[in-house]
C-alpha cells in the first residue's frame, strides 16, 4: 500500500473533571481512548457514532484544534503531533474543516467574499485583483454566483452558507478536509445538494475527507470506508459495502437496526439495544459496550477487545468468535 495521507495512531484525549472550591480533579472524561486509523489520498473515511462517542474530538485533534493527550498524528508522513504553532502553519494549508452550523461558523460582519478570501490573505497567496479573481472562481466552484461576493452571511440561506464554508475550506487547495456533521443542520432537499457538491469536488480535486456524521445513510452515501465509534474507541472499521452488508460488531448491528428505513413495507422498529450510552467519565471496564450487549460473556466485562482483522479489510473489536465478532447470519 502507498503511504497514507493521514495516519492516526493510538490517539487519546482525556479531559479532567474538576469539582469543589479547590477545583480538585475528581475524574477524567475518556473522550477519545486509543483511536488508530489511516486515510489514503482521495479517500473518504466516514466516522459514525452517537453523541459523546468522541468523533468530533477525533476530528479536532487531527487538525490540532484540540491538543491530544497522547498518540501520534502523521500527515503526509510527517509527525505533526508536537509541532509548534508556527511550524504547524504551513501544514494548515493542507488540512481544512467544515463545521456543522453554517450560522455559527461565519463572521456576520464580513462579506462572503472576504470570508472566502481571508485564508488566501493570511497565507500571503493573493492580493488585489488576483485575490478577487480567485474568490470569484471559488464561488463558481461551489455553485454560488460571483456577484454574491459582496453580500453578508445573513443574506444567504442555510445551504448557501454551507457552500461559503466549503469555498473557504477549498481556498488553500487542501489535501484533507474534515467535515464535522456538515449537513446535519440542513433540510433534506438541501442536504442532497451539499452532499452532491462534496462528492463532485472530491472527484475534481482528489482530496480526502474525514467525514463525521451521526446519520448512517449520509455516511454510507459519501464514504469509501466507515469507522464506527463507541465511547471513545473504534469498535469496527471496514469498506462501506462490507460494513453495511456484513456488520460484525453487536453495536454496529444494533445501530443499523435502529435506522428507520423509508419503506413502509419493511417495518421493523425493534430496538436491538436497551438503555443509554454509559458516561465517558467512568466507562465500563472491559468492552465498553458489554452493559448493553445481548451477547456479552463474562470475559467481556474484564478483557478489553483489540481491533483485530476479521478478513476482507474488516477490523472489529469484539471477543465473540475468537475476536471476529458476531456473524450477521446468526442474527
Amino acid at each position: 500500500m502507498t503511504e497514507a495521507l493521514l495516519e492516526v495512531t493510538d490517539l487519546k484525549k482525556y479531559y479532567p473533571v474538576r469539582a469543589g472550591v479547590l477545583r480538585r480533579q475528581v475524574g477524567t472524561v475518556h473522550s477519545v481512548d486509543g483511536v488508530s486509523f489511516s486515510l489514503q489520498a482521495g479517500e473518504t473515511l466516514g466516522l459514525v457514532g452517537e453523541s459523546g462517542c468522541g468523533k468530533s474530538t477525533v476530528a479536532r485533534s487531527v487538525l490540532r484544534l484540540v491538543e491530544p493527550t497522547s498518540g501520534k498524528i502523521r500527515l503526509d508522513g510527517e509527525d505533526i503531533t508536537h509541532l509548534s504553532k508556527s511550524a504547524l502553519r504551513p501544514h494548515r494549508r493542507s488540512m481544512q474543516i467544515v463545521f456543522q452550523d453554517p450560522f455559527a461558523s461565519l463572521n456576520p460582519r464580513m462579506t462572503a467574499g472576504d470570508i472566502v478570501g481571508e485564508p488566501l490573505i493570511v497565507h500571503g497567496l493573493a492580493t488585489g485583483k488576483a485575490l478577487e479573481a480567485r474568490v470569484a472562481k471559488l464561488f463558481e466552484q461551489v455553485g454560488l454566483r460571483p456577484d454574491q461576493m459582496h453580500n453578508f452571511p445573513h443574506q444567504f440561506s442555510g445551504g448557501q452558507r454551507q457552500r461559503i464554508c466549503i469555498a473557504r475550506a477549498l481556498a488553500l487547495g487542501p489535501r484533507l478536509i474534515v467535515c464535522d456533521e456538515p449537513v446535519s443542520a440542513l433540510d433534506v432537499s438541501i442536504q442532497a445538494q451539499v452532499i452532491n457538491l462534496l462528492i463532485d469536488l472530491q472527484r475534481q480535486h482528489g482530496f480526502s475527507y474525514l467525514f463525521i456524521a451521526h446519520d448512517l445513510a449520509v455516511v454510507a452515501h459519501i464514504s469509501h470506508r466507515v469507522a464506527v465509534m463507541y465511547l471513545g474507541r473504534i469498535v469496527e472499521i471496514a469498506g462501506k459495502d462490507e460494513l453495511f452488508r456484513n456488520p460484525r460488531h453487536p453495536y454496529t448491528q444494533a445501530l443499523l437496526a435502529s435506522v428507520p428505513i423509508a419503506n413502509p413495507l419493511a417495518k421493523k422498529l425493534a430496538p436491538l439495544v436497551d438503555g443509554d450510552v454509559p458516561s465517558p467519565v467512568n466507562p465500563p471496564p472491559g468492552c465498553a459496550f458489554h452493559t448493553r450487549c445481548r451477547f456479552a460473556m463474562e470475559r467481556c466485562k474484564i478483557e478489553r477487545p483489540a481491533l483485530l482483522d476479521a478478513g476482507d479489510g474488516h477490523q472489529v473489536a469484539c471477543l465473540l468468535n475468537e475476536g471476529t465478532g458476531r456473524s450477521n447470519a446468526t442474527a
Binding site: 445513510a217 454510507a220 452515501h221 459495502d241 453495511f244 452488508r245 443499523l256 428505513i261 423509508a262
Partner: peptide
Amino acid sequence: SIPAVPAAGIVA
C-alpha cells in the same frame, strides 16, 4: 433526495 443505508434489497 434521501440517501439510503445499503442493505439487503436496497440499492443505494
